[in-house]
């Protein structure tokens, strides 16, 4: 059973260390604008949400991609970018319901789970990010997770 990057927004304190950890590996600099994970901060409502690709089973980005530049990594279950196939057409960016893919420098960028050892998790002291086996989830956890994603979608769209 493959693991999943679990986001528990209730534990998030908006420190953004995940953005720093991610961007250092992604682009070799501490550069939140280029992080695959972005903490949405609506401070007035005390709403903090680390937004990152959830590697959907039925991934809209893969369906939208006309050049087969997005493929499933069989080991980690992550949707990964095949750089040489990507034309930066942006269709995946539009298709993603969560805004978890962006384009820079002629290619799509997204979380690829660091090949199965996500760096952001190591920097998250409060435990808002965890990398866990999916079969360790109870039905309640699955429901709660689904509800959170629904809330997030409403938040992003509103």
């Amino acid at each position: 059973m493959s693991k999943r990057l679990i986001v528990d927004p209730d534990q998030c304190t908006s420190c953004r260390l995940c953005e720093l950890a991610c961007s250092q590996l992604a682009v070799g600099a501490y550069q939140p604008s280029r992080s695959h994970i972005q903490v949405l901060i609506h401070a007035d409502d005390a709403f903090f949400f680390p937004l990152v690709c959830i590697q959907c089973e039925d991934a809209a980005c893969m369906d939208a991609c006309p050049t087969e530049a997005l493929v499933r990594d069989p080991d980690t279950n992550a949707v990964v970018v095949v750089e040489e196939n990507c034309t930066e057409c942006g269709l995946c960016v539009t298709a993603c319901p969560y805004g978890a893919i962006r384009c820079f420098d002629g290619r799509a960028f997204k979380c690829e789970l660091c090949g199965g050892d996500p760096e952001c998790v190591k920097y998250c002291s409060p435990g808002a990010l965890r990398y866990e086996s999916e079969d360790s989830w109870s039905p309640e956890q699955r429901k709660a997770y689904a509800a959170q994603m629904q809330d997030l979608a409403e938040e992003v769209l509103s």
Partner: peptide, 17 residues
């Protein structure tokens, strides 16, 4: 207390909303 809030890059989060 509503929730804890960090400054940038702080694992402690002493701020209080």
């Amino acid at each position: 207390l509503i929730r804890k809030r960090s400054c940038f890059a702080c694992p402690m989060a002493c701020g209080r909303v």
